[in-house]
Each structure stands twice: as C-alpha cells, then as structure tokens.
Design a binder for these strands. Structure first.
Length: 487
RNA sequence: GACCCCAUCGUCUAGUUAGGUCUAGGACAUCAGGUUUUCAUCCUGAAAACACGGGUUCGAAUCCCGUUGGGGUCACCA
C-alpha cells in the first residue's frame, strides 16, 4: 500500500458512553476513510488514569459495531504505549522546546502559529496569545496533546477529523509536529451538536433532568445510596449510577444523549447514522435519506458545514418511523425480536413463536420505534386480571348513554362464544355484521371491545388484536372488564 | 475578559468558492382541510428565513468592513 494512502482515526477517551457527537465524528472519519479507500483506526486516549475505564472502552466499541462502523486497525490504548512517547519528549527537551516544571515537562510556545483546516480554512494565532503547556504529567503519562501528535504520526494518520472544540488546541498540535519533525496531518474540525435550546448537548443534560425530578419528588436514598444521592443532589457530581437509579425509581424519561440511549429508545442504527450525518454535512441538493453506502460514495470534507447545529429529535423520530414502515415484514420482525431480547425479554418468554409473529405483524407499519410495541402492547402479555382500565376510556366508550357500551360487550361476548373456529378475520367479520344489523358504525362496537380487551382506546387493528389474544383470552377479558367496571 | 470560529424559514439545510437563472428550493415541526372503526399512516393546501448597519457593483443571500448574537479555547481533562 502506498504511504500516501488515507488513514483516519477515531480516538475517544474511554470515560463514559459513546456520545452522539462522538458518534458523528466516528462516522465522518469512517466515511472519509472508506470513500478514499483508506484505513480507519480506533485508538483510546486513556492517559487520564483516574477517569478511564475498560468498561467504557468496551461499550464504545460495542456502539461502533452497532452503528456499522468497522475499523481496520486497533483498538490501540495509549496507556499501553507509554514507552513510545519518551523518545519524542527527550528530543523536545534536548532541542530546547520543552522544560521541566515542578516535576512535569512543558513545551514552549514561542512562535505565531498558522495552520490550515479543511473545514474552517486558514487559522492564525499570534504567539502572545499562546501559552506553554504540559506534555508530560508528574505521573509519567503524556498529556493528550503530546500523545495525540505522536500517535497520529506513528500510525501514519493523514486526516484528523474531530470536534471543533479542538480547533484552538490545534495550534499546540501544529507546533508539536513542527518541533518534533513530524509532517502535519490534514485537520478537519466539525461543528458542534447542540440541544434544541442551543446549549451544548452533553451527558450533563441527563443529570440535570434526574436532579430536578429527584428534588421535586423529594426522593430519599436508602442505606449506601443515600450519601451518593445527596452528593448528586448537591451538584457535587453527575454520578451516572445515581442518574440511572433516579430514572428507574421515578420512571423518568431521560433525554437521549448517548448512542446507547437511542438504541434503548428503539432507533435503527442506519437511521441514526443517516440523521447525524445530516447534522453538519449533506450531499447537496435535496437528498436527505440515504444509507451508509451512499454516504461513502458521496462523502467529502468540503461539504462539512461550519456552523453548529441543533439536534432535532422529532426529525430523527420521523426518519425512524418511515424506515420502520418501509421495512419488509421479516426485516421488521427480526429487528423487533433483537430489540426485545435486549430490553424487554419477557415479551419473548410470554409470546410463543407464532404469537410473536402476530405481535410483530400487529405493529409492523405502525411502530415508529422498536420500543413502541413494548410500550403500547403490554396488554398482550398481561393476564386479564392484570389489566387496568383507563377511566376516561371506560366512561366514554362503556358507561356513557346508560351503559350502551356494556350492552354491546355482552352482545359481542355471546356472539364470540359461538364463533368456531376462532380467527381474527372471523371475529372482525362478526363485529361488522353486528354493526350493520344494529345500524351502527364500527366504532360503536370496536371501541368498547378495544377498551375491554386492552384497557385503553388504542391498539392495533381489531382483527389483529383478536387473533393474537385468542378466543379464550378475549372472552375472559370481556368478563373481567364487565365485572370490574360495570359494577 | 483575551483569543479563535460561526450566522438563510421554529429546526436541519440547498444556494455562497466562479455576484444576475433566488419575488430564495427541500426536509422535520406547526396550522387548515380530506381519508381512516382507535392508534399509527396516507393525501391536499397554508404560513414561515437571507441577524442588523454600512460599503463595492448596473446588480449582493453570495464579496469587504463594522455591530449584534451564538459557540469554542484559555487544566499536570481529553
């Protein structure tokens, strides 16, 4: 392979989950490498020993795989490469570029720095604005600035694509490259992803929501969690464990920030890639929906925008809904099964193979996330006596008009009882016939029935619902509903 | 505060590099109708932007300057 071949890298610090902004950086770096027929490298910048963790690194790798971003080399860990940084440091020291300072080593920023960024263009910072900075900490570890420059050079990285929070740091990296004698890579900084209110999208947002809710609910920790909770509530930290605990206890919907959050919410990886690619990049013209292959074919650095963009969950949601609807049944069923297996295993235990197919069919074309069937279809896996009835729905569809709905239910029950063999379409046909005989529209019968068997006014089409529930369960549910609500 | 960066509908953006074809196009959201047994869809339509002020030019969303607003950096974090 020629030495001029493109090499990009994604170099996260393993200090938490893969953030949506990090995912986009990873996606762009990947897409550029693939577009150029180059190599894509993963490297963990774990020189901060206190904050880095193996678990975090594993999770990040898992998320990258889930997103479909395969890599050619690595993962490398800077903490395993400490000896490689010593030679450049010694060189800098000997050449007078660096000096010892209270056990650490600093680099002298002596000159004006000019560098070119493929997105932002020419950047110039005068020497008087620049300060000397640490390249080797007292614990012997290199700082990010030194390690990033050395590793990029050693790994023959040609293009550094990263968030624009590093734009000013790049003066340090350019100076370091020049002083050590490394060729400078091409830098391309990407704009930031912001919340809808314009604030920076960060993990802290989850902590904020959890803290506010915990305070409002006057949540008290128990035993060993009490101290962690109170520290968290006093804003001493953003303890992710506490955040999860609070969310669990208060049944809170936390804002999705990390890739794992979006996976949990039921977004498809290809949709997430599509949407985040659109935040700061587009292929030109009116094309908005595309897959990774298209991205690879069209991706170019010069179409990356300079301005920050706000993350619009509603647009992502619509993209996801449309993708889910356009899937074939078997694609949808398989994706749903995978999702339930991870997040709602009880569905797979309670639904037999054939029932699962019916469940998937019921939500195919109507679910907008893979999590929606589990949220909206809980009644399918509950036993009749576990059902709760929505008071408003009961009042409106059953009790109103001297219990007209209850009468309908009794009539339906007796008709269903004699229906043999049972099938969704037969039950549906029966309701239709009855409606015609009684000169009512379908809703007058279907809605009371829906309330009786699901507890609410919302469910998949009545025939699919009848089919999945089965005759016995439908009759039981009607009986139970009449017993509980009409008394 | 200093420095760096940015600025088109509510949001993401096309258009800016080569000024006229832009009374500014698309998408999401919103609103109004229609379809639908619920929900989810689907169809039709509407409203909606070149931040402001100067300049250059026959002509500026596009080039220049300033103002305002936003973001970032200024750690022995990355």
């Amino acid at each position: 392979m020629p030495t001029s071949a493109v090499v990009t890298r994604f170099a996260p610090s393993p200090t938490g989950e893969l953030h949506i902004g990090g995912a986009r950086t990873a996606l762009f770096s990947w897409a550029f490498a693939r577009a150029q027929g180059g190599r894509y490298v993963i490297r963990f910048e774990d020189t901060d020993r206190a904050r880095s963790s193996d678990l975090s690194a594993e999770n990040i790798l898992h998320d990258l795989r889930w997103l479909g971003l395969d890599w050619d080399d690595g993962p490398f860990y800077q903490s395993h490469r400490l000896d490689l940084y010593e030679e450049p440091i010694r060189h800098l020291l000997e050449a007078g570029h660096a000096y010892e300072d209270d056990g650490a080593i600093r680099f002298r920023m002596e000159r004006d720095i000019d560098f070119h960024d493929d997105v932002y263009g020419h950047i110039r910072v005068e020497a008087k604005q620049l300060e000397d900075f640490v390249i080797r900490k007292t614990d012997g570890f290199p700082t990010f600035h030194l390690a990033v420059v050395v590793d990029d050079a050693l790994m023959n990285v040609t293009h550094v694509i990263r968030g624009q929070e590093h734009l000013t740091n790049t003066t340090k990296h350019a100076a370091l490259c020049d002083a050590i004698g490394y060729p400078r890579p091409v830098w391309a900084h990407t704009p930031s992803i912001m919340n809808s209110d314009g604030s920076k999208m960060s993990k802290r947002d989850k902590a904020k929501v959890a803290r506010r809710a915990a305070l409002a609910a006057d949540l008290q920790g128990v035993d060993c969690t009490a101290e962690r909770l109170s520290k968290f509530l006093e804003k001493k930290n953003d303890d992710a464990g506490v955040v999860a605990m609070v969310a669990e206890q208060l049944d809170l919907q936390l804002p999705e920030i990390d890739v794992a959050d979006f996976r949990h919410s039921g977004y498809l990886p290809e949709v997430l890639c599509n949407y985040i690619a659109l935040l700061g990049w587009n292929p030109g013209g009116d094309v908005e929906r595309f897959d990774r292959q298209f991205l690879v074919e069209r991706f170019a650095l010069d179409r990356i925008n300079k301005a920050n963009s706000r993350f619009d969950r509603k647009k992502l949601f619509r993209f996801n809904a449309d993708m889910l609807q356009s899937m074939t049944f078997s694609q949808f069923r398989d994706s749903l099964r995978k999702h339930l297996a991870i997040y709602h295993e009880s569905y797979l235990h309670k639904l037999s193979g054939c029932q699962f197919d019916q469940f998937a069919e019921a939500y195919h074309g109507r679910a907008r996330t893979l999590d929606e069937p589990a949220q909206l279809g809980a009644f399918f896996i509950l036993s009749p006596d576990q059902l709760t009835y929505d008071a408003t729905a009961v009042k409106k569809n059953l009790a109103k008009n001297d219990g007209a709905g209850f009468a309908m239910l009794r009539e339906l029950r007796s008709q269903f009882n004699s229906l043999d063999p049972w099938s969704g379409s037969a039950a549906h046909e029966m309701i239709k016939q009855l409606a015609e005989t009684m000169q009512l529209n379908m809703g007058k019968l279907a809605q009371p029935l829906r309330v009786a068997v699901t507890g609410t006014t919302v469910s998949p089409p009545i025939d699919l619902t009848m089919a999945l529930l089965g005759k016995d369960s439908v009759l039981e549910r009607i009986d139970h509903c009449l017993a509980v609500t009409s008394g």
